[in-house]
Amino acid sequence: MSLDSTDIDKLCELARLAIPADEVADVSAKLSDIVALVDQLKAADTAEVEPMAHPLDRSQRLRVDSATEDVDRELYQDNAPAVERGLYLVPKVID
């Protein structure tokens, strides 16, 4: 299995990444190497094996329902590239 430039385009769309056209071939080659590496997994016999999503075989600890967080909007928005009237600005969202 290898990933050609069409695959890379699709993945870039899915992951919202721009990759300059002259780098696509290199990305494609390197990703194909990685795919060859992970293809080794296919040799493992896992017919009877449960997938392991997490190293902790425990159940989730839950939180009591109370409003404990103070929101400091000014502080939190100090990092924002563009804010107007307390709202984060982005190019127009079209439904």
């Binding site: 993945l11 997994l41 296919k42 493992a44 896992t46 094996v49 392991m52 999503a53």
Partner: peptide
């Protein structure tokens, strides 16, 4: 990021992501 998106995408999830989780168990 691209490899990660790929192994989770439709058609590859079972062969890669799920298989990797099983190998993780092994």
């Amino acid at each position: 990021i691209l490899i990660g998106a790929w192994v989770l995408s439709t058609g590859y999830y079972d062969a890669y992501y799920l298989q990797a989780q099983k190998v993780r168990q092994l």
